[in-house]
Design a protein around this nucleic acid. Structure first.
Ligand SMILES: [Zn+2]
Length: 454
DNA sequence: CCTGCCGGGCG
DNA sequence: CGCCCGGCAGG
């Protein structure tokens, strides 16, 4: 009753009054006729973007929670922009993380690899290695500081067997580290980030442990498990001989002799290459170590490494570089690619997280160009597509992609040119609440005022 | 607090 | 659709 009456009164009254006093009827009429207000104001004002930008940072929404759950550093990191970048990037990280971790691990493992042979083989050499192994193994992630990493890097780069690492591998390995380093030096937040990484590596170490044990352990699950247990439980007083088929190959230039025992290989080297009798044993003992190498059935950990690289390369190599620099120019394309690629392969949680945001994706309309009510800004609109609103994964993934991309995009573009607020007086203010019937319908409906545009 | 308005619910 | 309101963000 009231409403209707009020509405009618409102209308008639307003038509006369307002037209008389303000002479805005033209404006009003036209606007009313075409509901211009909706598109424009909505787009221009807050719009999904505004909300997005706002909410994404402060961490209110559910999605944020999810995100938070996903990635601590997003919260941990201080800066909004950066944070958002991280958020956006998070996606990559998840994909990329393993890769990086692998690499790191690989490197570390590489370092630790050398000591490894000793324990596996026997007692003689275990002296030096025994100490190293446990350390590297139980390396408490947090404790591991850059020094160690750097050391690992250096060592790996210096001494790592050339066979193991392809140039690409090296590159990728170097890149992340570089970023990590710079970030670290930059701010604590990144430090956190790196820590998180470190933390992760151990968690991921089981899989990663493979390469670690790689040199000795081929793709044998049973063996792997064994290794894991050994690694994680304790130094394993003694190893099962059969667990690893180790051999030692002479590295002497033209000699490829392979023996199954350290003693044998040493003796071989000593006698054959070093031309030394038993008397010099002590002195040259260290020397021999350099001339043989431990190998297993498969000779090199290449199989595992291969796998890792292969699996990771499509995603991680591509992503790692991108994360650090939120590639401002055209994230859409590259990001899209990465994401889309990752989407199918990766589990569904990402979707969930992103899908949360997705509610904003559909109305992607404007983004930057707030002025034009038209949808000139549809650069990244293509993704949303008609979205039949069904729950098919594909759709989801698509939206996901668009969203995350959108996020990045927003953070970069919308943030700067985001409009503050309509400073123009609106109906409410002009007429006052008591004269609510004089407000424009939009105002009455608590929508964007269509009478007094900004 | 007030104001502007988005998202959503109701008829 | 029209109408209204909860609630949020900015001042
Ligand atoms: Zn109004």
């Amino acid at each position: 009753m009231n409403h209707k009456r009020r509405g009618q009164t409102n209308r008639t009254g307003r038509d006369e009054k307002s037209s008389a006093s303000l002479g805005l009827d033209l404006d009003r009429l036209s606007s009313r006729r075409q509901t211009v207000m909706l598109p424009k104001s909505r787009l221009g004002k807050r719009s999904p973007l505004g909300a997005l930008v706002g909410s994404a940072c402060p961490t209110p929404g559910p999605h944020t929670n999810l995100e938070t759950g996903e990635t601590d550093f997003s919260v941990a990191a201080g800066h909004q922009a950066k944070v958002k970048g991280h958020l956006g990037l998070k996606v990559y990280f998840q994909c990329g993380t393993p890769g990086v971790a692998d690499q790191l691990d690989a490197m570390q493992s590489d370092v630790s690899t050398r000591p490894h042979p000793a324990p596996s083989s026997g007692s003689s050499r275990s002296v030096s290695s025994c100490i190293d192994v446990p350390q590297s193994q139980r390396r408490s992630p947090q404790e591991v500081d850059m020094d160690e990493l750097m050391a690992a890097m250096v060592l790996s780069s210096l001494s790592c067997s050339p066979l193991l690492h392809s140039p690409a591998n090296t590159d990728t390995a170097a890149a992340p580290m570089d970023c990590g380093g710079s970030e670290l030096s930059d701010s604590g937040s990144s430090g956190y980030w790196s820590v998180g990484h470190a933390n992760r590596s151990p968690a991921a170490s089981p899989p990663t442990a493979e390469p670690d044990a790689g040199p000795a352990t081929p793709p044998d699950e049973g063996l792997d498990m064994d290794m894991e247990q050994v690694l994680f439980d304790e130094p394993a007083p003694r190893k099962r001989k059969n667990s690893v088929k180790v051999a030692y190959r002479c590295l002497w230039p033209s000699c490829g002799k392979v023996l199954t025992s350290v003693v044998g290989i040493k003796r071989h080297i000593r006698t054959t290459h070093l031309c030394r009798g038993g008397e010099h044993e002590r002195c040259s003992r260290s020397e021999e170590d350099f001339y043989y190498t431990e190998i297993n059935q498969q000779q090199q950990p290449s199989p595992p490494q291969r796998l890792l690289c292969g699996a990771a390369s499509p995603t991680s190599p591509a992503s790692p570089p991108s994360p650090p620099p939120p590639s401002p120019p055209s994230p859409p394309s590259s990001a899209c690619g990465a994401l889309s690629r990752s989407a199918p392969s990766s589990p569904g949680r990402l979707w969930q997280v992103q899908s949360e945001h997705s509610y904003q994706a559909p109305p992607p309309s404007h983004v930057v160009s707030t002025a034009a009510p038209g949808t000139a800004s549809c650069r990244w609109t293509p993704t949303p597509t008609p979205t039949p609103t069904c729950h098919s994964r594909q759709v989801l993934s698509v939206r996901v992609r668009s969203v995350s991309v959108g996020e990045q995009w927003l953070q970069q573009h919308s943030a700067p040119c985001r409009r503050i607020r309509g400073e123009a007086k609106k109906c409410r203010k002009v007429y006052g609440i008591e004269h609510r019937d004089q407000w424009c319908t939009a105002c009455r409906w608590k929508k964007a005022c269509q009478r007094f545009h900004d």
